[in-house]
């Protein structure tokens, strides 16, 4: 889970950086350039396959772990006070991840399917930027994306530092740094991602 998790975080960073190009507010010119580069570069195309493999592996591992862990405690406690010893989001990674998976299916339908399996964008009829403006003109989409980003924030808040622990990359000199970077990533990435639909819906991005 650690390796695949960190790999997926590295993807999120690239994704977030490229999409943040819309904040330049130049009518999507720079953003479209970036999108075109990503669509045509063969290295990126190959990485797309690795990315889906990584995502699938992350999900399979989670399913296997959850099954084994449920089996390890067949009878639940009658009285339980888990908040006394651990954070709710560290115990709810499966739930947060499921919310993210549902969001991801809708999100892929919105953008990935349109750009990869229709000729809308490749034919030059439409740009990804315009697609974004159209999708984010619907209020329910904006709300869904924001809620998903809250899930992402908490998922990363546990996931980032947990990955280092799982991989044994742990040292008194670097532990506090890992913790801080984890907190920063879990705030910056979801906030930037959520700002995109909000800004477009409010008409701040022309």
């Amino acid at each position: 889970m650690g390796i695949t998790g960190l790999f997926l975080i590295s993807f999120l960073m690239v994704h977030c950086f490229l999409n943040s190009l819309i904040f330049i507010n130049d009518g999507g010119e720079t953003f479209n350039l970036g999108a075109e580069f990503m669509a045509k570069n063969w290295v990126i195309r190959a990485m797309e396959i690795v990315l889906f493999g990584g995502l699938l592996w992350h999900i399979i591992q989670a399913a296997v772990l959850t099954r084994e862990n449920k089996k390890a405690r067949p009878v639940a406690y009658a009285a339980s006070n888990p908040s006394a010893n651990s954070k709710w989001y560290s115990r709810s990674m499966g739930l947060l991840g499921t919310i993210l998976l549902i969001f991801l299916i809708i999100h892929l339908r919105h953008f990935w399917v349109v750009s990869r399996f229709t000729d809308e964008i490749t034919s030059g009829k439409e740009t990804l930027f315009n697609e974004m403006k159209e999708v984010f003109s619907q209020l329910w989409v904006v709300i869904l994306y924001c809620l998903a980003m809250v899930s992402l924030g908490y998922h990363l808040l546990h996931g980032f530092k947990s990955a280092f622990q799982t991989l044994g990359w742990n040292h008194v000199k670097y532990n506090s740094m890992i913790e801080k970077i984890g907190v920063i990533i879990s705030i910056v990435l979801p906030v930037l991602f959520a700002a995109m639909p909000i800004a477009i819906y409010m008409g701040l991005i022309k």
Binding site: K71, A84, N85, K87, K161, F164, Q165, N170
Partner: peptide, 24 residues
Amino acid sequence: GNCTNTGACEAECPKGISLSNIAR
């Protein structure tokens, strides 16, 4: 079961065994 790094064990350990042992 498997460790998912919630840290509940360390918090409840009567002898204060550290999670850094799990990383090791």
